[in-house]
Simulated assay, not measured.
Amino acid sequence: MTAHRDTTASDVAFEKWVTHFTSNRRRHDAIEAMIDWEAPARLPTGVRAILVRSFQRFELGEGGDGLHLLRKAEGCGTAQREALRLLVAEEQKHSALFRRGLQHLGAGTLTNHWSDLIFTRLRRALGLRTELALFLTAEAVAMPYFVVLARSGPDPVIRGIGTRIALDEEHHLAFQIAQLRGGLAALTTPVRTLVLLLWWVVAVGAATVVALDHGSALRACGLPVRRYWGAALRSFRRAVEATVS
């Protein structure tokens, strides 16, 4: 899954994604305009501290500059490179939303965290296709977290941030699936089986890290960790099935 040229796709196939990401800015503005950013965070001290820790880690994870990913995409078509650039810009916007959430909660950001360091180094050590597969894994297992923030976050601003990000991530997953689809079909059956097995191992590990790092935040939003874990792996399974179909 580390091949570089395999990720090159015709510009026609990715022009729709460039259009989507470009027009998406209007939807972003509309959703964010509905959030009362000046509203005070009237949360119990314990709940506030839990959300601060969780948001700090997500802010760090979403805040990568994407330069390594874009460098690996230099052999791709023009529209695919532009779509990837716009995708990275949306992820950076998610980081900015978590920073605004932290401001709302009266807290600052982190400079580093072990889970982000490990995941970042793993992604950067591999080729474009594998980095995209890891990107898909991270977003698939994070989806239940964003959804529960949107549905039952303990504060209107928190729910607004969850809504804004969850809507984006649905499209991000579809975009990554579009790039990866067909790649596994070119592999021999034994190699494809091994790749899928390793992919599942990574997904289980990623879901476990989220459960450990953000379990208290999930519970604060009414989602038990065990239920999150099952939902995360179902989300990943759907993504993999769409990729190999």
Rank of each mutant, 00 (worst) to 15 (best):
L43D: 03
L43A: 01
L43E: 01
L43G: 04
T45N: 06
T45K: 14
T45E: 15
G46Q: 05
G46D: 15
G46V: 02
G46K: 11
V47W: 04
R48W: 12
R48D: 05
A49F: 05
I50D: 12
R53A: 13
S54Q: 12
F55Y: 15
Q56D: 05
Q56F: 00
R57S: 02
R57Y: 01
R57F: 00
E59L: 00
E59I: 00
E59Q: 15
E59G: 07
L60Y: 05
L60T: 11
E62G: 10
E62C: 08
G63S: 10
G64R: 07
G66Y: 01
H68L: 13
L69S: 01
L69H: 02
L70V: 08
R71K: 13
K72R: 15
A73V: 11
A73T: 09
G75V: 04
G77A: 05
G77R: 00
T78E: 13
Q80N: 03
R81Q: 14
E82H: 11
A83N: 01
A83S: 12
A83K: 01
L86R: 14
V88S: 06
V88D: 03
A89N: 12
E90T: 12
E90N: 11
E91H: 00
E91M: 06
E91L: 03
K93L: 11
H94M: 09
S95P: 10
S95H: 03
S95Y: 02
L97R: 08
L97G: 00
L97K: 01
F98S: 05
R100M: 12
R100V: 04
G101Q: 05
L102E: 05
L102I: 01
Q103S: 13
Q103V: 13
L105D: 09
G106Y: 02
G106E: 03
A107P: 10
G108A: 06
G108D: 10
T109Y: 08
L110H: 12
T111D: 14
N112I: 08
N112M: 12
H113S: 11
H113W: 11
W114H: 08
W114Y: 10
S115C: 08
S115Y: 12
S115H: 09
D116H: 15
D116W: 07
L117W: 06
I118P: 00
I118F: 08
F119W: 14
F119Q: 10
F119L: 06
T120V: 11
R121A: 07
R121N: 13
L122H: 10
R123D: 06
R124S: 09
R124K: 11
A125N: 09
A125G: 09
L126H: 10
G127N: 03
G127P: 00
G127E: 03
G127H: 07
L128C: 01
R129V: 09
R129H: 09
R129N: 11
